Each structure stands twice: as C-alpha cells, then as structure tokens.
Computed example of a mutant assay.
Amino acid sequence: MKKLIIGLALIIATVNLSFSQELKAEQEIINISKEKWQWMADKNVDELAKLFDEESKFVHMSGTWKKDRELEIIKTGSIWYKNADVRDVAVEIFGKTAILWNRITLIAVVRGNEVSNEFTVTEIYQKQEDDWKLLDLTFSSVRDTHEIEH
C-alpha cells in the first residue's frame, strides 16, 4: 500500500511539473510576441534580427519573403508596424515548437499611407538551445468578428 501511495504521489508530481513547465513556456512565448510587436513599431531591427531564424518566412497580403527582406522593410519604413492592438492570444506547445495566434488590429504605414487592418497573425517559434526563434509570421486578413478558439 505504501508503494502504491508513493507511486501515485510521483505520478501526480510529474504531471504537475510538466503542466507547470508548459504554462511557463506559453507565457514566455506570449511575452516574446509582445516584445516583437514593440520592436517592429520601434523599427528595432537589431533585436528582431536576433529573434528571427535565418530561414524565417513572413507572409503578408502582398507577398512572402525571408528574414533579410523583412528586416530591410522594417528598417526603411516601407512598412511601419506603428501599433498592433492585440485583443486575443492563444498558444500551443508541441515539444520544441510553439504556435501563437494573435487577433490584432494593425495600424501601419505602408508606402506612406496609414492603414488599419484586422488580422489573425500566426507565429511559429522553435526552441533552439536556450532561445526561442521565430520561424514564421503569417498575417491572415479576417473580419472584425473573427474569434480564436482556445
């Protein structure tokens, strides 16, 4: 009986630790995403360059490109991500991969014109050594009634 109780206690402790680690990783991804939006607004390409994986892709309404072009677009202000009003966030962790969905209203300046668009943005991150790296950022145009199912 004593072995059974000890065994059950170990199982419960393991499940709690695993759940706690997943919640910590989810919060870490949410925080990284928030920082990313601020860095984009501030045109802080130095921090973004560290976050973006060398092979990362960026899917916009006008095309898809890689890290270097995205950083150049941000640096030159061709697209200025002026403000991302994040209203909903969902995260799922799959081993060393995290997928985050943001429901946002994006105020941006695109080729000199200020625009406002409703998006669900999908961000894919991968844990590489001690850091999370952004692999993909995809903007999906949606209606203002669109909701992310949790």
Rank of each mutant, 00 (worst) to 15 (best):
Met61Asn: 11
Thr122Gln: 14
Asn83Ala: 00
Ala84Asn: 12
Val121Phe: 02
Arg111His: 12
Lys75Met: 09
Ile93Thr: 08
Leu23Gln: 15
Ser140Asn: 14
Lys2Ala: 11
Ala41Val: 01
Arg111Val: 12
Glu118Phe: 08
Gln21Trp: 06
Asn31Trp: 05
Thr122Trp: 02
Leu100Gly: 03
His150Tyr: 15
Leu4Glu: 07
Val91Asp: 02
Leu71Glu: 09
Ser20Cys: 13
Glu147Asn: 09
Leu10Ala: 13
Ile6Asp: 05
Asn31Arg: 11
Arg103Glu: 11
Leu134Arg: 03
Asn113Met: 11
Val91Phe: 10
Ala98Val: 13
Glu26Thr: 08
Gln21His: 07
Asn16Pro: 01
Val59His: 06
Asn44Cys: 04
Ser56Asn: 04
Thr76Asn: 14
Phe52Thr: 02
Met40Tyr: 01
Thr105Gln: 12
Ile74Lys: 04
Leu8Glu: 03
Met61Lys: 10
Leu134Lys: 03
Ile73Trp: 02
Glu72Ile: 07
Ala9Trp: 06
Arg143His: 12
Thr14Cys: 13
Val115Asn: 07
Tyr81Trp: 14
Ala90Ile: 08
Phe19Gln: 12
Ile12Lys: 02
Leu51Ala: 03
Thr105Phe: 03
Ile29Ala: 02
Ile73Cys: 06
Asp46His: 03
Asp68Gln: 12
Lys96Asp: 14
Asp136Pro: 00
Trp80Tyr: 12
Lys57Asn: 06
Glu54His: 05
Val121Asn: 06
Ser33Glu: 11
Phe139His: 08
Ile107Val: 09
Trp39Tyr: 14
Phe58Thr: 10
Ile32Asp: 10
Gly77Tyr: 08
Leu10Cys: 15
Ile124Gly: 02
Asp131Gly: 15
Glu70Ile: 09
Glu26Asp: 04
Val91Met: 07
Thr120Gly: 00
Ser140Gly: 05
Glu55Tyr: 08
Asp144Tyr: 00
Val89Asn: 02
Leu51Trp: 01
Thr105Glu: 13
Leu106Arg: 01
Asn44Trp: 01
Phe52Pro: 00
Arg69Leu: 12
Gly7Trp: 00
Ala49Gln: 02
